[in-house]
């Protein structure tokens, strides 16, 4: 059986705006990924715990509330603590180019601001998977 890329789509913090998360989750599913959606109101700890339990390849955070400068660094820290070196942390939402640059420098994967293409995000994840996981037997 082919191995599918497993992605956790997660909403962090108090933010209840889930349009983006749901659209992305559906798009990833239709692109052939195995998608787990966290639902609302997750702490960084809860997200990392789910990622470990579900053995995901990718954590994709959707955020609108402006709390991204707190959320991403905390998740990164917890990922390091748990030796999740082979898991990609990516995400998208209402983030300025400056903030995105700062977070990517801290060690997140590519982050997607408003108006980003979903196809590009899918390509990015597939590409990352090919380069970082053993066999590119997806597709």
């Amino acid at each position: 059986m082919e191995k599918k890329i497993r992605v956790l789509v997660a909403k962090a913090g108090l933010d209840g705006h889930d349009r983006g998360a749901k659209v992305v989750a559906s798009f990833f599913r239709d692109a052939g990924f195995e998608v787990i959606y966290s639902g609302l109101r997750q702490t960084p700890q809860m997200i990392v715990d789910t990622a470990l339990q579900e053995d995901v390849d990718v954590i994709a955070i959707s955020i609108l509330s402006g709390a991204h400068m707190m959320v991403f660094p905390k998740i990164l820290e917890l990922m390091k603590k748990n030796n999740m070196n082979d898991v990609l942390l990516t995400g998208g939402g209402i983030m300025s180019e400056d903030d995105i640059k700062k977070l990517e420098e801290l060690g997140t994967g590519r982050l997607f601001g408003p108006g980003s293409s979903l196809k590009e995000a899918v390509e990015y994840i597939r590409d990352w998977y090919r380069k970082n996981k053993k066999i590119p037997n997806e597709e």
């Binding site: 913090g13 108090l14 702490t43 509330s65 402006g66 709390a67 707190m70 959320v71």
Partner: peptide
Amino acid sequence: DLPTLMGRDSDDPWSEGEVGIC
């Protein structure tokens, strides 16, 4: 802001990073 909308004070642990943001 989100803490107020969710009925949480600014010193609530869930409010961290969200006080006065949106």
